[in-house]
Design a protein around this nucleic acid. Structure first.
Lengths: 131, 131
DNA sequence: CTCATTGCAAACGATTTGCATTCGC
DNA sequence: GCGAATGCAAATCGTTTGCAATGAG
Protein backbone atom coordinates (compact mmCIF):
# COMPACT_ATOMS: atom_id res chain seq x y z
CA UNK A 1 0.00 0.00 0.00
CA UNK A 2 1.03 3.60 -0.37
CA UNK A 3 2.36 5.58 2.57
CA UNK A 4 -0.51 7.61 4.10
CA UNK A 5 0.87 8.57 7.50
CA UNK A 6 4.01 10.47 6.54
CA UNK A 7 6.06 8.16 8.74
CA UNK A 8 9.22 6.83 7.08
CA UNK A 9 11.21 3.71 7.90
CA UNK A 10 14.90 3.05 7.57
CA UNK A 11 15.61 0.21 5.15
CA UNK A 12 18.77 -1.29 3.77
CA UNK A 13 17.65 -0.41 0.24
CA UNK A 14 17.30 3.28 0.99
CA UNK A 15 20.62 3.38 2.82
CA UNK A 16 22.22 1.55 -0.07
CA UNK A 17 21.02 4.09 -2.64
CA UNK A 18 22.07 6.91 -0.36
CA UNK A 19 25.55 5.41 0.03
CA UNK A 20 25.87 4.95 -3.72
CA UNK A 21 25.31 8.65 -4.35
CA UNK A 22 27.61 9.51 -1.44
CA UNK A 23 30.42 7.45 -2.90
CA UNK A 24 29.83 8.31 -6.54
CA UNK A 25 31.37 11.77 -6.46
CA UNK A 26 29.63 12.56 -9.74
CA UNK A 27 26.06 12.73 -11.02
CA UNK A 28 24.45 9.33 -11.73
CA UNK A 29 21.42 8.23 -13.71
CA UNK A 30 18.78 6.02 -12.08
CA UNK A 31 20.01 3.17 -14.21
CA UNK A 32 23.63 3.63 -13.10
CA UNK A 33 22.50 3.76 -9.48
CA UNK A 34 20.44 0.60 -9.99
CA UNK A 35 23.36 -1.23 -11.56
CA UNK A 36 25.58 -0.26 -8.63
CA UNK A 37 22.87 -1.23 -6.14
CA UNK A 38 22.49 -4.67 -7.69
CA UNK A 39 26.11 -5.45 -6.96
CA UNK A 40 25.32 -5.41 -3.24
CA UNK A 41 21.69 -6.49 -3.48
CA UNK A 42 20.88 -8.37 -6.70
CA UNK A 43 17.12 -8.54 -6.19
CA UNK A 44 16.63 -4.79 -5.70
CA UNK A 45 14.15 -3.49 -8.26
CA UNK A 46 14.63 -0.34 -10.31
CA UNK A 47 11.30 0.93 -8.98
CA UNK A 48 12.79 0.90 -5.50
CA UNK A 49 15.74 2.91 -6.75
CA UNK A 50 13.43 5.42 -8.44
CA UNK A 51 11.36 5.68 -5.23
CA UNK A 52 14.48 6.20 -3.13
CA UNK A 53 15.72 8.86 -5.54
CA UNK A 54 12.36 10.61 -5.51
CA UNK A 55 12.27 10.69 -1.73
CA UNK A 56 15.82 12.01 -1.60
CA UNK A 57 15.00 14.70 -4.14
CA UNK A 58 11.92 15.68 -2.10
CA UNK A 59 14.09 15.76 1.01
CA UNK A 60 16.55 17.91 -0.98
CA UNK A 61 19.33 15.39 -0.38
CA UNK A 62 19.59 14.88 -4.13
CA UNK A 63 19.12 17.32 -6.94
CA UNK A 64 18.19 16.69 -10.56
CA UNK A 65 20.82 17.57 -13.15
CA UNK A 66 19.54 17.83 -16.70
CA UNK A 67 21.98 18.08 -19.58
CA UNK A 68 20.29 18.80 -22.90
CA UNK A 69 20.16 15.63 -24.95
CA UNK A 70 21.22 13.39 -22.07
CA UNK A 71 19.27 11.27 -19.58
CA UNK A 72 18.34 12.63 -16.14
CA UNK A 73 21.22 12.68 -13.67
CA UNK A 74 21.08 13.08 -9.90
CA UNK A 75 23.77 14.31 -7.56
CA UNK A 76 24.00 14.93 -3.85
CA UNK A 77 22.99 18.46 -2.97
CA UNK A 78 24.53 20.52 -0.21
CA UNK A 79 27.29 22.00 -2.32
CA UNK A 80 25.40 25.24 -2.41
CA UNK A 81 23.90 26.80 -5.50
CA UNK A 82 26.01 26.06 -8.54
CA UNK A 83 25.79 25.36 -12.25
CA UNK A 84 27.38 23.07 -14.80
CA UNK A 85 29.82 23.08 -17.65
CA UNK A 86 29.12 20.43 -20.25
CA UNK A 87 32.06 19.51 -22.47
CA UNK A 88 30.73 18.90 -25.98
CA UNK A 89 33.85 16.89 -26.83
CA UNK A 90 34.14 14.39 -23.97
CA UNK A 91 30.57 14.73 -22.58
CA UNK A 92 31.83 15.21 -19.04
CA UNK A 93 29.87 17.50 -16.78
CA UNK A 94 31.77 19.81 -14.42
CA UNK A 95 30.40 21.81 -11.54
CA UNK A 96 31.06 25.52 -11.79
CA UNK A 97 30.84 27.67 -8.69
CA UNK A 98 29.13 31.01 -8.70
CA UNK A 99 26.12 32.36 -10.52
CA UNK A 100 25.50 35.47 -12.60
CA UNK A 101 22.48 36.26 -10.41
CA UNK A 102 20.09 39.06 -11.30
CA UNK A 103 17.66 36.66 -12.96
CA UNK A 104 14.91 38.83 -11.56
CA UNK A 105 15.73 41.42 -14.22
CA UNK A 106 14.91 38.91 -16.97
CA UNK A 107 11.59 37.84 -15.45
CA UNK A 108 8.58 39.34 -17.26
CA UNK A 109 6.21 41.49 -15.21
CA UNK A 110 3.64 39.46 -13.28
CA UNK A 111 5.67 36.26 -13.50
CA UNK A 112 6.87 34.64 -10.26
CA UNK A 113 10.46 33.40 -10.41
CA UNK A 114 11.21 30.31 -8.32
CA UNK A 115 14.52 28.97 -9.57
CA UNK A 116 16.79 28.76 -12.60
CA UNK A 117 19.04 26.31 -14.38
CA UNK A 118 22.17 27.30 -16.23
CA UNK A 119 24.39 25.04 -18.31
CA UNK A 120 27.55 26.24 -20.02
CA UNK A 121 28.68 24.35 -23.11
CA UNK A 122 32.07 24.21 -24.71
CA UNK A 123 35.38 22.41 -24.41
CA UNK A 124 36.91 21.50 -21.08
CA UNK A 125 40.56 22.26 -20.36
CA UNK A 126 41.74 18.81 -21.46
CA UNK A 127 39.79 18.76 -24.71
CA UNK A 128 40.65 22.39 -25.53
CA UNK A 129 44.37 21.68 -25.04
CA UNK A 130 44.28 18.49 -27.10
CA UNK A 131 42.73 20.42 -30.02
CA UNK B 1 9.99 2.61 -47.14
CA UNK B 2 12.50 5.09 -45.83
CA UNK B 3 13.86 7.89 -48.01
CA UNK B 4 17.10 6.71 -49.66
CA UNK B 5 17.60 9.25 -52.43
CA UNK B 6 17.78 12.48 -50.42
CA UNK B 7 15.01 13.93 -52.55
CA UNK B 8 12.26 15.63 -50.56
CA UNK B 9 8.66 16.33 -51.53
CA UNK B 10 6.44 19.20 -50.53
CA UNK B 11 3.36 18.00 -48.65
CA UNK B 12 0.50 19.76 -46.92
CA UNK B 13 1.46 18.07 -43.64
CA UNK B 14 4.99 19.44 -43.65
CA UNK B 15 3.80 22.92 -44.57
CA UNK B 16 1.18 22.73 -41.85
CA UNK B 17 3.73 21.91 -39.15
CA UNK B 18 5.99 24.65 -40.45
CA UNK B 19 3.14 27.18 -40.29
CA UNK B 20 2.25 26.13 -36.75
CA UNK B 21 5.74 26.90 -35.49
CA UNK B 22 5.76 30.13 -37.49
CA UNK B 23 2.56 31.30 -35.84
CA UNK B 24 3.21 29.95 -32.34
CA UNK B 25 5.47 32.73 -31.06
CA UNK B 26 6.73 30.43 -28.31
CA UNK B 27 8.38 27.00 -28.07
CA UNK B 28 6.01 24.07 -28.56
CA UNK B 29 6.20 20.38 -27.71
CA UNK B 30 5.51 17.80 -30.40
CA UNK B 31 2.22 17.12 -28.66
CA UNK B 32 1.20 20.79 -28.72
CA UNK B 33 2.13 20.99 -32.39
CA UNK B 34 0.16 17.81 -33.09
CA UNK B 35 -2.91 19.14 -31.26
CA UNK B 36 -2.72 22.33 -33.32
CA UNK B 37 -2.17 20.37 -36.54
CA UNK B 38 -5.23 18.23 -35.91
CA UNK B 39 -7.45 21.29 -35.92
CA UNK B 40 -6.72 21.74 -39.62
CA UNK B 41 -6.12 18.09 -40.46
CA UNK B 42 -7.77 15.69 -38.00
CA UNK B 43 -6.22 12.50 -39.38
CA UNK B 44 -2.60 13.70 -39.17
CA UNK B 45 -0.57 11.30 -37.04
CA UNK B 46 1.86 12.34 -34.32
CA UNK B 47 4.60 10.34 -36.07
CA UNK B 48 4.23 12.65 -39.05
CA UNK B 49 4.63 15.65 -36.75
CA UNK B 50 7.74 14.12 -35.18
CA UNK B 51 9.16 13.40 -38.64
CA UNK B 52 8.46 16.94 -39.81
CA UNK B 53 10.08 18.35 -36.67
CA UNK B 54 13.14 16.16 -37.09
CA UNK B 55 13.59 17.28 -40.69
CA UNK B 56 13.21 20.93 -39.69
CA UNK B 57 15.77 20.53 -36.90
CA UNK B 58 18.19 18.92 -39.35
CA UNK B 59 17.58 21.82 -41.74
CA UNK B 60 18.21 24.18 -38.78
CA UNK B 61 14.79 25.74 -39.24
CA UNK B 62 13.86 24.60 -35.74
CA UNK B 63 15.95 24.46 -32.61
CA UNK B 64 15.54 22.10 -29.68
CA UNK B 65 14.74 23.71 -26.33
CA UNK B 66 15.41 21.42 -23.37
CA UNK B 67 13.51 22.12 -20.17
CA UNK B 68 14.78 20.05 -17.25
CA UNK B 69 12.27 17.32 -16.44
CA UNK B 70 9.94 18.14 -19.33
CA UNK B 71 9.36 16.85 -22.83
CA UNK B 72 11.35 18.42 -25.66
CA UNK B 73 10.21 21.80 -26.94
CA UNK B 74 11.01 23.25 -30.35
CA UNK B 75 11.03 26.82 -31.63
CA UNK B 76 11.90 28.48 -34.91
CA UNK B 77 15.55 29.40 -34.96
CA UNK B 78 16.99 32.72 -36.04
CA UNK B 79 15.46 34.95 -33.37
CA UNK B 80 18.81 35.81 -31.88
CA UNK B 81 20.08 34.97 -28.42
CA UNK B 82 17.44 34.63 -25.72
CA UNK B 83 16.37 32.43 -22.84
CA UNK B 84 13.23 30.79 -21.48
CA UNK B 85 10.75 30.96 -18.65
CA UNK B 86 9.08 27.65 -17.84
CA UNK B 87 5.76 27.83 -15.95
CA UNK B 88 5.67 24.94 -13.48
CA UNK B 89 1.86 25.21 -13.30
CA UNK B 90 0.75 25.16 -16.95
CA UNK B 91 4.01 23.85 -18.47
CA UNK B 92 4.09 26.60 -21.10
CA UNK B 93 7.50 27.92 -22.09
CA UNK B 94 7.94 31.64 -22.78
CA UNK B 95 10.83 33.44 -24.41
CA UNK B 96 12.50 36.03 -22.21
CA UNK B 97 14.54 38.87 -23.64
CA UNK B 98 17.96 39.74 -22.37
CA UNK B 99 20.72 37.73 -20.80
CA UNK B 100 22.70 38.16 -17.60
CA UNK B 101 25.88 37.81 -19.66
CA UNK B 102 29.25 37.54 -17.93
CA UNK B 103 29.22 33.75 -18.25
CA UNK B 104 32.91 34.08 -18.96
CA UNK B 105 33.46 34.83 -15.28
CA UNK B 106 32.01 31.42 -14.33
CA UNK B 107 34.09 29.50 -16.84
CA UNK B 108 37.04 27.70 -15.25
CA UNK B 109 40.51 28.63 -16.47
CA UNK B 110 41.50 26.81 -19.64
CA UNK B 111 37.93 25.95 -20.57
CA UNK B 112 36.53 27.26 -23.83
CA UNK B 113 33.00 28.57 -23.54
CA UNK B 114 30.91 28.14 -26.69
CA UNK B 115 27.36 28.76 -25.55
CA UNK B 116 25.05 28.58 -22.56
CA UNK B 117 21.48 27.59 -21.77
CA UNK B 118 19.44 29.36 -19.13
CA UNK B 119 15.95 28.40 -18.01
CA UNK B 120 13.95 30.32 -15.41
CA UNK B 121 11.26 28.38 -13.54
CA UNK B 122 8.19 29.65 -11.73
CA UNK B 123 4.62 30.71 -12.37
CA UNK B 124 3.59 32.66 -15.45
CA UNK B 125 1.42 35.74 -15.12
CA UNK B 126 -1.82 33.83 -15.70
CA UNK B 127 -1.05 31.01 -13.27
CA UNK B 128 0.32 33.40 -10.63
CA UNK B 129 -2.85 35.49 -10.79
CA UNK B 130 -5.11 32.43 -10.56
CA UNK B 131 -3.15 31.54 -7.41
C1' DC C 1 5.03 5.09 -62.63
C1' DT C 2 8.31 5.73 -58.82
C1' DC C 3 9.40 6.19 -54.43
C1' DA C 4 9.06 9.85 -50.59
C1' DT C 5 5.64 10.44 -47.25
C1' DT C 6 1.78 9.27 -44.58
C1' DG C 7 -1.31 7.05 -40.90
C1' DC C 8 -1.56 3.63 -37.80
C1' DA C 9 -0.03 0.48 -34.60
C1' DA C 10 3.47 -1.78 -32.45
C1' DA C 11 8.11 -1.20 -30.31
C1' DC C 12 11.01 1.48 -27.35
C1' DG C 13 13.50 3.24 -23.22
C1' DA C 14 12.71 5.84 -19.09
C1' DT C 15 9.82 6.35 -15.27
C1' DT C 16 5.56 5.37 -12.50
C1' DT C 17 1.99 2.70 -10.40
C1' DG C 18 -0.94 -1.38 -8.58
C1' DC C 19 -0.72 -4.90 -5.56
C1' DA C 20 0.40 -8.83 -2.78
C1' DT C 21 4.29 -9.80 0.17
C1' DT C 22 7.84 -8.49 3.36
C1' DC C 23 9.70 -6.51 7.31
C1' DG C 24 10.79 -2.15 10.41
C1' DC C 25 9.22 -0.47 14.50
C1' DG D 1 0.44 -6.60 14.26
C1' DC D 2 0.11 -2.34 11.70
C1' DG D 3 1.29 -0.22 7.73
C1' DA D 4 5.54 1.62 5.20
C1' DA D 5 8.48 -0.25 1.85
C1' DT D 6 9.71 -3.69 -1.46
C1' DG D 7 9.77 -6.56 -5.83
C1' DC D 8 7.69 -7.48 -9.83
C1' DA D 9 4.83 -6.72 -13.60
C1' DA D 10 1.82 -3.95 -15.96
C1' DA D 11 0.90 0.80 -17.15
C1' DT D 12 2.25 5.37 -18.85
C1' DC D 13 4.78 8.86 -21.33
C1' DG D 14 7.47 10.71 -25.01
C1' DT D 15 9.44 9.24 -29.18
C1' DT D 16 10.74 6.07 -32.97
C1' DT D 17 10.02 2.53 -36.31
C1' DG D 18 7.85 -1.06 -39.60
C1' DC D 19 4.80 -1.42 -43.10
C1' DA D 20 1.05 -1.19 -46.35
C1' DA D 21 -1.38 2.51 -48.55
C1' DT D 22 -1.20 7.15 -50.47
C1' DG D 23 0.10 10.83 -53.41
C1' DA D 24 3.79 14.30 -55.27
C1' DG D 25 6.60 14.94 -59.23
Amino acid sequence: MVNTTGVTRKTVQKQLVNDIFLRAGRPLTAREAHDLARVARPRIGIATVYRAIRRMVEAKELRLVVIPGEAAYYERSGNGHHHYFHCCACQKVYVVQGCPGSMKALTPAGFVLERHDLVLHGKCKTCAARR
